[in-house]
Design a protein around this nucleic acid. Sequence first.
DNA 1: AAATTTTAAGATAATTTTATCTTAAATTTG
DNA 2: CAAATTTAAGATAAAATTATCTTAAAATTT
Lengths: 143, 143
Amino acid sequence: MITEAAKDSIRAVIYIALYREDREFISIKEIAQTLNLSFYFLSKNLLKLVKAGILESFRGPKGGVNFKKDPKEVKLIDIISAIDGTYIFESCILGFKECSETNPCAIHNKWAEERKRLYDMFNISVKKVADEIKSGEIKNIKI
Amino acid sequence: MITEAAKDSIRAVIYIALYREDREFISIKEIAQTLNLSFYFLSKNLLKLVKAGILESFRGPKGGVNFKKDPKEVKLIDIISAIDGTYIFESCILGFKECSETNPCAIHNKWAEERKRLYDMFNISVKKVADEIKSGEIKNIKI
DNA sequence: AAATTTTAAGATAATTTTATCTTAAATTTG
DNA sequence: CAAATTTAAGATAAAATTATCTTAAAATTT
């Protein structure tokens, strides 16, 4: 569905939203250690979010990353798009380069509906996900 | 979502269901040429379907592959399972090894619903897909 | 100013997936 | 029986993704 890179990155931004509080920057080391992710791999991936204008970064001690955009405005789909691209939500499930209503593959209609739903599923802001977690509605949740 | 191997294989079985008529075996060469797929890659993948008991094969001139199981009984999900495994329909969208209702990730509930729908989408028989195509309900369809 | 910390950038390697080729075995055709 | 055709099996290579490491640059701390 989505790459490991995108999965790690989504977990990272949720972590930042949950635990940054009033800190200026959260070090990637802290994120990687807490989430049990590879520091190297996460660094590379978060850098893409920096370049996409979603996060900002700062070097040196006290350095790290933080949201550049308001997490209310950052959707999970934006993370996925920045890391994996939007191809998965636009492409034909049977691999045709062109596949549309007017010249569909055998299961175009079914997939078109599901990929729209998947898009909608990820079209939720980081803030909203973080707030759901904070609210305690969901028991035993893992970050 | 699903691998290229699975995509090719789904197209191949739909092709066989549509065009085998009363022939005993359909050569992989014919399938690959008609569908514009790599003969080498398709051979390898269809072999997996043979080993999974979905197709049967026969060597020599007049050789090829054909359904072993009735295409009414073969679901697209069976093709995907034989080629890619069922992992995608069971796994956590954020990559956790264990993720369930009782110990969920941040978007477990949303993804659990969507992956169920994806499973259902592929839980359609090859015969049904082929019949839909033959019926002509869908205009300008590509195989 | 020197040492330390942290991201930036890019090199390198491992793994997985995709693609191609070769040889063998089974079957038919001539 | 020899030649041709087709799948079977496995070797090899290419491409993409994941993982790790190294060096540089920026900032802070001492």
